[in-house]
Design a protein around this nucleic acid. Structure first.
Lengths: 343, 343
DNA sequence: CTGAAAGCGCTTACAG
DNA sequence: CTGAAAGCGCTTACAG
């Protein structure tokens, strides 16, 4: 059911200005090509007619005729606007909104695909994906097949976070967790820690693997030795068994869980054991101390993703190969107060 | 620059199934009207062809042909996804997302209009408004002309919050602040308060007026007498001058400012003076006490707004008059601990 | 029961 | 310099 009230079209403008509809289109799109040279006088006449009307180009028609729309799709594998997801998505969405305002585009959130098993499907029978010029993909985990299909169809898109779920070359903007993790491990070594736990969520996302990679490197190269632990359930025993003086947690929330579990068993952070998150820690405290970990530029990641998407859209797909489509932004260590010298 | 890779169209499906493109369209849209009766066999053949392809209807073409799209616009007069605005917009956006998932529609955020003087403009030269089937309007203050124009153009839309900026009948879903304020005043009277301050933000929104109306009613009808104060700057003197035993603040944040200002002058809430917000107070505390005020169903407001919009879209505009398009949802008092018996 | 045709509003070669 | 025409992918009367 489209709105009934007839909207003013180029044809009407043409009638008013006494020119053809083609000319109106030309003026609107500033087409001053080889064969076309519209005299200033005509141009002015058309422009005035437009000014005085409420004319707005019909985006659907533009799109159908093959032009871009300045509409960027936003797809999230989970609900993005729920209070629980705000911690992760909040800064990203904020970055997107600001970048969108900058480049003058609208954001189409694909909220229609129902969340099943906690995850949405990108391609479904009624997807409005193609209404957008391109799409930003958000989520901790993504579907490799979705990514591959987007690449194959040459649909412009950019994933947020490093992606390696498929062999296809996926455009992404992420955070360099490898370097950050390496830095933090070096720091821990300096502080005298030799034995540590790495508490993770057993998730198999690229960023999880990035961290894990450096953990393994440390183990293999004589750095602090990490014992891997999935979740906090056995943390107290693991700590006692290994004699670890330090716990790395995959993210700040997990770190808080660790501190809680240890606290219940009478082990106090950081006096008796150091604790560090391998993720954003701003705003997180443990026993009154600012948590040690990273500071990651999430807003900037989102903004860069939108810029990259914009680039892809304005570049013919056969020239994409020349573009730098995989960006990792640097974060920085946030020393905090919970990573201290070996007890 | 539309994606280059040709997408599969109805024509191709038609070729595969050995029918006309018209028939494909009929099957897809389940058109089984008076003159059309497609035999199950043909129907199946077409359906199978579609299943086996990656066919997805082009939303732009559908739209241009006059059908709906299941795309709801979302317009906010300020940036909606910034950390500062999350307190107000967060629950609304969350409600929208969940409702959208329910009804199976996508959400188009009009982020393209740059914020000027802190407010965006709905109608601009390149607005993609008409791409959406309808639009949800969010914001503390709205432009009366915008509202009027939407009504005049019979574009389906719903405002969140009661609206009275224009004489046109604006569809809205809001919260009944009038009743809530009246209840709270009655409660204050019961507790023995006779002299009070009403600290407001000098804003001229409908919800601000709703509260003010009851404040005036109280003054006129022999209830507690309120002195109006714009902002917290002179709060200490005002309190001394009037001998008020109670302060109403327009919202929870303002209430916190009040408590702070009073605290600096040595006046402690609630021991020496009661304090109450005429707005959502969940999560707000003053001097360790849960703030007294309201509990308002913001998520539900957003969800109801989307449902109403859906109704408008599916109802021919000449039948809109028969619809109940102005809804006020009831909130409830949150007694808290900062409104106590007269000191 | 099914298909050829017109139309939605726009853009872009292509003729004048 | 400007306009008539074709086409984007779909829907919907309208003829067969």
């Amino acid at each position: 059911m489209a709105p009934k009230a007839r909207n003013v079209t180029q044809r009407e403008i043409a009638r008013i200005a006494g020119v053809s509809q083609t000319t109106v289109s030309m003026v609107l799109n500033d087409r001053d090509g080889s064969n076309v040279r519209i005299p200033e006088a005509t141009r002015e006449r058309v422009k005035r007619a437009i000014e005085q009307s409420t004319y707005v180009a019909d985006p659907a028609a533009r799109r159908l005729a093959g032009l871009d729309n300045q509409i960027m799709g936003v797809f999230t594998y989970e609900a993005a606007l729920s209070p629980e997801s705000m911690d992760f998505y909040g800064p990203l969405l904020n970055g997107l909104e600001r970048a969108a305002e900058q480049v003058g585009c609208d954001l189409l959130f694909f909220t229609s695909s129902p969340v099943e098993d906690g995850t949405r499907s990108l391609f479904h029978r009624k997807t409005r994906l193609r209404l957008a010029d391109g799409c930003i993909l958000l989520g901790q985990q993504m579907d490799g097949d979705d990514l591959k299909r987007l690449v194959d169809e040459e649909f412009p898109f950019v994933a947020v976070g490093r992606r390696d779920e498929t062999t296809a070359k996926v455009p992404y903007v992420g955070i360099d967790y490898v370097s950050l993790t390496a830095e933090l491990i070096a720091r821990a070594a300096e502080l005298g820690h030799r034995e540590a736990l790495y508490v993770h969520r057993g998730r198999n996302s690229p960023t999880a693997r990035d961290r894990l990679q450096e953990i393994h490197t440390s183990n293999a190269s004589g750095g602090p030795r990490f014992t891997l632990v999935d979740g906090v359930d056995t943390i107290v025993e693991d700590l006692a068994r290994t004699g670890a003086t330090l716990v790395f947690a995959e993210d700040a929330f997990l770190a808080e869980d660790v501190a809680l579990a240890l606290g219940k068993a009478g082990t106090v952070v950081p006096e008796q054991v150091s604790l560090t998150a391998l993720g954003e820690v701003r705003g997180h405290r443990v026993n009154g101390h600012p948590l040690s970990g990273f500071q990651v530029p999430r807003q900037q990641v989102a903004a860069e993703a939108l810029n990259l998407l914009q680039q892809l859209i304005t570049t013919p797909s056969d020239e994409w190969a020349g573009l730098d489509t995989q960006l990792l932004l640097a974060g920085q260590l946030e020393l905090g107060e919970t990573l201290v010298g070996r007890a």
